[in-house]
Simulated assay, not measured.
Amino acid sequence: MDNTTHFGFKDVATDDKQSLVKGVFDSVASKYDLMNDVLSFGAHRLWKRYTIASSNVKTGDKVLDIAGGTGDLAIEFRKKVGESGQVILSDINAAMLGEGRKNLINQGIFGVDYIQLNAQYLPFESNTFDCVSIAFGLRNVTDKDQALREMHRILKPGGCLLILEFSKTDSELLKKFYDFYSFNVMPKLGGIIADDEDSYQYLAESIRKHPDQETLKDMVLEAGFGFCEYHNLSGGIVALHKGIKT
Rank of each mutant, 00 (worst) to 15 (best):
L138Y: 12
I115A: 02
L117P: 01
Q120C: 01
E125A: 07
V185C: 08
A119Q: 00
F129A: 01
K168A: 04
F166A: 00
D145C: 11
G158Q: 14
N140R: 14
S182Y: 00
L155N: 04
L173R: 12
Y181I: 02
R139I: 02
I163Y: 13
V185R: 04
A147H: 10
P123D: 04
G158H: 15
R153D: 10
T128L: 05
F166C: 00
D170Y: 11
F124I: 01
D179I: 01
F124V: 02
A135P: 01
F183L: 08
L164T: 03
A135W: 12
Y178R: 05
L161V: 06
V132F: 06
D145Y: 13
R149N: 14
K144W: 15
C131N: 06
A147K: 10
I115W: 12
L117T: 05
Y178P: 09
N127T: 02
S126N: 13
N118S: 02
S133V: 08
D145N: 15
D143E: 15
F129P: 12
D130W: 09
L174K: 09
F129S: 07
S167Y: 04
L117A: 00
F177A: 03
G158K: 13
N118H: 00
M186A: 13
I134H: 10
S182Q: 06
N140C: 11
A119C: 04
K175F: 10
Y121C: 00
I115H: 11
P187E: 13
S171R: 02
R139C: 02
Q116P: 00
L117D: 01
L162D: 07
F166L: 02
C160A: 02
N118G: 00
L162A: 05
E125G: 00
E165Q: 05
N140L: 06
F124A: 03
D170S: 08
A119H: 02
V141L: 09
K168H: 12
D179K: 11
P157L: 13
D130T: 07
Q120G: 01
D179W: 14
F124G: 06
F180T: 10
G159L: 06
C131F: 04
E165N: 03
L117W: 00
K144G: 15
K176P: 11
R153E: 11
F180M: 12
N127Y: 07
D170G: 06
S171W: 09
D143K: 11
E165C: 04
